[in-house]
Write a protein that binds this DNA or RNA. Structure first.
Lengths: 241, 241
DNA sequence: CCAAGTTGTCTATTAGCATAGACAACTTGG
DNA sequence: CCAAGTTGTCTATGCTAATAGACAACTTGG
């Protein structure tokens, strides 16, 4: 709690480290409000601006989030999202102790572009169903996905998804007992207005853009999708070897 | 080896920590010369003045010692000197992996002052033998001692010490099989010219002044002494409880 | 709607950090 | 004794840290 003088470690850094330790050891639980800046300043006996510098450093790293007029909150721990051959949103979220949910935003017919046709092993111009959905952990939106399936193989997929609210269940509905992730490409972008609204995210926040294709056990492509994850809510884990 | 920018940790502190780690893991052995300030500055890619700040911090803590015109040296680790009931210079030094040595400087007869007489349980004016000696670990002087013994009980103690060069052996020579430290008083002073010469110490460096009396198993006083330790070479350990 | 409490932003000042260059003072090896 | 290399000290400059105060913008609870 106390700060050292002339130690070669900046005061704001000492305060930031102190708060981070408080978050790590549970004194400041995820989602709760930190003490006000003035109170923190009194606790550490530093100027309020020094506290603000410390909080800014923590916010930069995504550990806390300041809400003007209200307070500064401990960010929920990022959802650990392993990228394996077997990648299932509901399983990953469930395993981390949260309740996975899916929500249909829109479903419509579309014609395959060359890229999507190649991913799905179809011919350019083949009939597709495009599903826009958002997936949540508890009530926190994690990602929005645009999913393409062959309209021939999965007729009426849109309304099916609207009922089961899960891609795994949708595929099971069409007799697909198992599938796996064949390819994953990751990049990042800035949330546009649509992303921001759907993810309940501030405009301009980073999103992780994931292009992925799932295939059945005989490597035949089933679905291809582009998902946009709220970067501050997830952390992809790539298992090497 | 590399330095971080805008981390809230001052550059000089990062450099100091780096050097300290080098000392701790043996890359810079005790007693050896550190690279020159210019070389260190190039290694860490900082200004020489920043290196000097780092070295000053280490010197302040006694880890290094700068010698003008020559270089900056890693201070030998301080000798751990436990202050117990059983305090034997040769045992303590030997246990820490160094070779203990004693050296007679001078021995003469003296008349007991009131203070020394009280310590030794004699009458003021009793005949004493005073021994001036220096004790070393390997070849490094650790302390100079002035030792008083009863001339009646330990006749010719001076020449005996000159031969055995150890207080324990001197006492054994007179049939004392065991003894223990009964009292120890510690204070500090500045090395005078005599201390400095005998301890191979710079003038003005601090010395630890220890007044102690050893007694036999029946608590009869044997010897009393005043020792002056080179403070930068020892570290007294007081075992509490 | 209001008052209290919160974060956000601005100006200003002081102190320390880091850099740069120059030279003095000293040691060492030849 | 000299030259090279070392630490010590001085001046100077630009930048960041830390402090202080004031006010704006916003949220919350009553």
């Amino acid at each position: 709690m106390s700060v050292e003088e002339s130690s070669g470690v900046a005061l704001w850094r000492q305060v930031a480290d102190g708060i981070e330790r408080g978050i790590a050891d549970g004194r400041f639980a995820a989602g709760t409000k930190l003490p006000g800046e003035v109170e923190i300043a009194e606790t550490y006996r530093v100027n309020r601006h020094t506290v603000r510098r410390a909080l800014a450093a923590l916010a930069e790293r995504g550990l806390v989030r300041a809400e003007r007029g209200s307070g500064t909150y401990v960010e929920a721990q990022r959802l650990a999202y392993p990228l394996r051959s077997r990648t299932r949103f509901s399983e990953i979220v469930g395993a981390s102790g949260h309740e996975p949910r899916g929500q249909l935003i829109d479903a419509c017919d579309e014609i395959a572009t060359r890229e999507i046709a190649r991913e799905l092993g179809l011919k350019t111009g083949a009939r597709l169903i495009r599903i826009e959905s958002v997936r949540l952990a508890d009530r926190m939106p994690i990602c929005v996905s645009t999913t393409w399936l062959s309209a021939e193989r999965f007729p009426d997929a849109g309304s099916v998804f609207g009922n089961v609210r899960s891609m795994t269940k949708l595929l099971a509905h069409y007799g697909v007992r198992d599938y796996r992730r064949s390819s994953t490409r990751i990049t990042a972008a800035i949330a546009d207005a649509t992303d921001a609204a759907r993810l309940d995210l501030a405009l301009g926040r980073p999103v992780l853009v994931v292009d992925a294709t799932d295939v059945d056990p005989s490597d035949k492509p089933l679905v291809t999708k582009r998902s946009r994850f709220a970067a501050e809510r997830v952390e992809f884990l790539v298992e090497n070897g």
